[in-house]
């Protein structure tokens, strides 16, 4: 059935549509979608890694880890329309944080070019599910980073930086890259969040597909299918990169 869905998406698209989706403005929209995904995946991976390490490292009370993991499970699933509105309520034109910063700190975000309905706003909102996802995905890998390695390194006179440079990061790298690709796909395929937030101002490819499929003004399902096929190609490439990385990172996790 799933395979059938794809055949249709492809078969329904003539070469004309395939040619069209690499033209402007769609080329820019693909690029924008990829850019947003790369940025949120990059920032999300970095922050998620730091938070996950802070959560797991020795000295941090155990209960904090339980709370944070459970919360990450919730936050990673809290997406779409409600998430978009939560951020509008926070950082929208009359949002709580916006008015607070204006009244108490004397800085008007919107007068300085910030808007939650723009690209930065979408990226900020995506981070709300990207960071928890990274925490959930990377935690087992950090668990695999054994305390003995760290002790061995320091016995041999390594500094903390040297430990990370020569042991920690190289061991974690496949997991980090794998998680990065997962986060990329996660953000690349997001529709509802961006739709709720910036349906009319940030033209990500999923938004355009939704627009062409159900659009009140123009409706061209075949073209939507061609655009969807383009997305699928990008994700398939990412998946091909993911599988070998996954295999490699599994080696250290026992």
């Amino acid at each position: 059935m799933i395979v059938g869905a794809f055949k249709n998406a492809h078969g329904g698209a003539t070469l004309h549509h395939m040619h069209q989706i690499v033209q402007q403005p769609y080329r820019d929209q693909y690029w924008l979608t990829i850019k947003v995904s790369l940025i949120t995946a990059g920032v999300g991976s970095f922050l998620g890694l730091c938070i996950a390490y802070a959560m797991i490292r020795e000295g941090t009370p155990r209960f904090l880890r339980t709370i944070l993991t459970t919360f990450s499970g919730v936050a990673a699933n809290f997406a779409g329309i409600p998430l978009a509105f939560a951020f509008i309520a926070t950082l929208g034109t009359i949002g709580i944080a916006t008015t607070f910063i204006k009244d108490h700190l004397g800085y008007d975000l919107y007068a300085h070019g910030f808007t939650i309905f723009g690209q930065t706003g979408v990226e900020l909102t995506y981070l709300y599910f990207q960071i928890p996802l990274m925490i959930l995905v990377i935690a087992p890998a950090i668990d695999g980073l054994r305390a003995e390695w760290r002790e061995a390194a320091s016995n041999l006179g390594a500094t903390s930086w040297q430990f990370w440079r020569y042991v920690g990061i190289p061991v974690l790298l496949p997991s980090i890259l794998g998680a990065f690709i997962l986060l990329f796909g996660n953000s690349f395929s997001a529709y509802a969040t961006a739709y709720g937030l910036a349906g009319n101002s940030v033209f990500l490819i999923p938004i355009t597909i939704g627009f062409y499929y159900s659009g009140n003004v123009v409706s061209d399902p075949h073209f939507a299918q061609a655009l969807a096929f383009g997305m699928f190609v990008v994700l398939a490439v990412m998946m091909l990169l993911y599988v070998p990385l996954q295999r490699r990172s599994a080696r250290w996790m026992r």
């Binding site: 799933i2 794809f6 690349f188 597909i209 299918q225």
Partner: peptide, 16 residues
């Protein structure tokens, strides 16, 4: 279904 975004899935299913 992990790899295929919901937006692509729905386009395919509506068509199917």
């Amino acid at each position: 279904p992990f790899v295929v975004p919901p937006i692509v899935l729905v386009v395919g299913l509506l068509n199917l």
